[in-house]
């Protein structure tokens, strides 16, 4: 049995800034994960369907447009509705500290803001993935 952690790195929303997502994708690759990268401007529907088809253990969303309070919870709900109960869902980007408790209540397991070492994201995934 050679399980490998699969992570969907997704960019929901309309901002076109994917440097952060690419840096994280690369770091996860170097940590031995299989990273499915889907590109910019994904709708919650597309992210959910890609997560389902790829059977990922983790959905990692990067968002810098300010729409996180709408889009992150929407993705969580859609993923759970599709029967993916164990998928770890995390987010990152320019997200005000004040918004983080609300996102966690909505089912986003962790939120990584600018300055987070990629090692902490990797550790979090390794510790929490089911």
């Amino acid at each position: 049995m050679e399980k490998r952690i699969r992570v969907l790195v997704a960019k929901p929303g309309l901002d076109g800034h994917d440097r952060g997502a690419k840096v994280v994708a690369r770091a996860l690759r170097d940590a031995g994960f299989e990273v499915i990268y889907t590109g910019l401007r994904q709708t919650p529907e597309q992210i959910t369907e890609a997560a389902l088809q790829e059977d990922v253990n983790v959905v990692a969303m990067s968002l810098l447009s300010g729409a996180h309070n709408t889009l992150f919870p929407k993705v969580v709900k859609m993923i759970r509705d599709k029967g993916m109960k164990d998928t770890l869902i995390i987010g990152g980007g320019v997200i005000p500290d004040a918004d983080i408790p609300g996102l966690k209540d909505a089912g986003v397991s962790a939120v990584f803001t600018p300055g987070t070492p990629t090692g902490s994201i990797i550790d979090f995934i390794k510790t929490n993935v089911k």
Partner: peptide
């Protein structure tokens, strides 16, 4: 590392739904 970047879906986003 045993890791991979699987990026083929980027060109196939319109098929996802």
């Amino acid at each position: 590392s045993g890791g991979a970047i699987l990026g083929d879906r980027i060109r196939m986003n319109e098929l996802t739904l």
